[in-house]
C-alpha cells in the first residue's frame, strides 16, 4: 500500500519568530525528504509539528489524503520519531528500554535482539544506557526504528555521534526502509549519501 504525507501552507511561529510561512510539500512512498538549513532555522520544529508536539499557526498535514488531526492515532501508529535526544532511560538497559518501547506502537517481525544485532550493540544489551558512549546510545535509539512497524520515519540529525561505520550502517538502514516503500523526513546539516528519490527543503 502506498502512503503519502503532505503539508499545506504551513506557518509556524515560535515566540516572536516566524520560522516558516506558507510551506508546502508532498512526499510519497519510497521518497526521502531532506530538511536543510542552519542551526535554529526550524528543522526540529517542523519535525515536532509533524508528530504533533508543536501547534501550527496555520496550515495542516495530511496523511494519505486525510487531515492528520482527524486520525491522530492511525498517523502516530504509522510513524516513529527519532529526536535529537535518544529519549530512553539512562538507568535502564537497552533491552529494558526497548521492551517498554515495544508496547508503545505496532511492531514488525524484527525482535529486539535482531535489531540490536544489526546495529552492532547486542553485546551491550545488559548494560545501563548511561554507561554506553553517546554513539552507542544513538545506536540503541535507532533500534526503536527497526522494531516498529512504521512507514514514516522522522529523524532529527540521526548521524550525530555516529562513527564512519555507524553512518554507513544508518545510510543502509534508511535506504532499505525507503526501498521497501517507506517514507522518511530527515533533518541534517551534512549531505546524506542515500541513493533514493530525494526532495529537499531549505529552511531559511
Amino acid at each position: 500500500m502506498s502512503n503519502t504525507l503532505s503539508a499545506h501552507k504551513l506557518t509556524l511561529v515560535r515566540g516572536e519568530r516566524c520560522l516558516f510561512k506558507g510551506l508546502n510539500f508532498a512526499l510519497g512512498s519510497g521518497e526521502l525528504l531532506l530538511l536543510e538549513g542552519r542551526n535554529g532555522s526550524g528543522k526540529t520544529s517542523l519535525l515536532k509539528a509533524i508528530i504533533g508536539l508543536l501547534e501550527l499557526e496555520t496550515g495542516e498535514f495530511q496523511w494519505n489524503g486525510m487531515p492528520v488531526r482527524s486520525q491522530r492515532q492511525e498517523f502516530l501508529s504509522a510513524s516513529v520519531w527519532m529526536a535529537h535526544r535518544v529519549g530512553m532511560k539512562p538507568d535502564l538497559t537497552a533491552s529494558e528500554n526497548l521492551s517498554f518501547e515495544s508496547t508503545l506502537r505496532p511492531l514488525n517481525n524484527c525482535d529486539i535482539e535482531e535489531a540490536l544485532e544489526r546495529l552492532g550493540v547486542l553485546r551491550l544489551k545488559k548494560l545501563p544506557l548511561r554507561s554506553l558512549s553517546a554513539g552507542q546510545q544513538r545506536r540503541v535509539g535507532l533500534a526503536r526504528m527497526l522494531i516498529a512497524r512504521a512507514t514514516l520515519w522522522l529523524m532529527d540529525e540521526p548521524f550525530t555521534n555516529l562513527d564512519r561505520e555507524g553512518r554507513d550502517l544508518l545510510t543502509g538502514i534508511i535506504s532499505d526502509h525507503i526501498e521497501a516503500g517507506g517514507l522518511c523526513v530527515l533533518a541534517a546539516h551534512q549531505d546524506v549519501a542515500v541513493d533514493v528519490p530525494t526532495q529537499r527543503i531549505l529552511l531559511e
Binding site: 508528530i51 504533533g52 508536539l53 520519531w81 529526536a83 535526544r85 535518544v86 529519549g87 530512553m88 506502537r105
Partner: peptide, 12 residues
C-alpha cells in the same frame, strides 16, 4: 532525558 517526548509521540 527526552523520553517524555517519545511518550507524547506514541499512538498509545
Amino acid at each position: 532525558d527526552g523520553s517524555l517526548e517519545q511518550l507524547l509521540a506514541s499512538p498509545q
